[in-house]
Design a binder for these strands. Structure first.
Length: 265
DNA sequence: ATGCCTGCGGTTCGCAGA
């Protein structure tokens, strides 16, 4: 089973690009982030024509996530469970998580996430990022107790180590490289999740995002912020990982590129 | 030091992204 994660930066603005990539790469599952539309405005038909079942958790203008799957999907969850330490719902109306079980002889649970950006640091948005991370951490802990194969994949909006940026000094003071964001990411991994990029031996410089501005792509000023974190049962089935760098050169590209992990069927 | 791009909503600019 081949599972892709891709922050598409608006599924409607990006539709021809996303469809062209899906046709060529033909993943079994595609987790999309930043669809930037409500469920009713998600262009279901062209994806269904390519053979995908479609489940969305949309929102007007911002955020929004979706799972496309050639196999049936079950046990669908929209939004992370839980509240923050103050007892308040931390979703705040933001659609950033959808999860489903991909049915097969050896099922895989897929969590598709769009972690908050968190800038500027030390404002409400950064606190929201850390609170969201905490809820993800608790949910991952609960999922691990099920002892299932799963991937928590998506745009984590974290640069975990200096080698995950072409120019780490440029990111000092940014929410993506803040020590608290990095610590939260590492704590999540230390629950017992495996980074597919690491399992696959991806070299430094395997970036997944290049800003539209300042010639970042031309100068390869990238960062690695999109990940598949695999449960032990999924890591046991790991075959390969591919970061589709070429997608950054497509017409009207997203600023992120897809990352595809293959697990044994 | 600042803005660079891009998308969205809704109107020609502000917000958000990373």
């Amino acid at each position: 089973m081949r599972i892709a994660t891709w922050n598409v930066n608006s599924v409607n603005a990006r539709l021809p690009t996303v469809l062209a990539w899906l046709e060529a790469a033909a993943p079994d599952v595609a987790c999309l982030q930043e669809i930037k539309c409500v469920d009713e405005k998600f262009p279901r038909e062209p994806f269904e024509s390519l053979g995908y079942n479609v489940e969305t958790h949309g929102q007007k203008s911002y955020n929004g996530v979706a799972i496309l799957s050639r196999r049936p999907l079950s046990d669908i969850r929209r939004g992370l469970p839980g509240v923050d330490d103050s007892g308040h719902e931390t979703d705040a109306g933001q659609a950033r998580y959808i999860e489903a079980v991909v049915e097969s002889a050896r099922p895989v649970r897929v969590g598709c996430l769009y972690l908050p950006n968190g800038n500027p640091v030390d404002a409400d948005k950064f606190a929201y990022k850390l609170a969201w991370f905490d809820r993800l951490h608790r949910h991952a802990r609960d999922l691990l107790a099920l002892e299932e194969a799963f991937s928590l994949c998506g745009d984590y909006n974290v640069i975990p180590t200096p080698t995950d940026a072409k120019n780490p000094a440029a990111w000092v003071g940014d929410a993506l490289f803040d020590p608290r964001s990095r610590a939260a990411f590492h704590a999540l991994r230390h629950l017992g999740l495996s980074d597919a990029g690491e399992l696959g031996g991806q070299p430094p410089g395997t970036y997944t995002f290049w800003d539209y501005q300042a010639g970042a792509w031309r100068r390869d000023h990238g960062i690695r912020i999109d990940f598949h974190l695999l449960s032990p049962q999924a890591a046991d089935r790991f075959r390969s990982v591919e970061t589709h760098r070429d997608a950054r050169d497509m017409d009207r590209p997203s600023d992120h590129v897809p990352v595809v992990v293959e697990l044994e069927d």
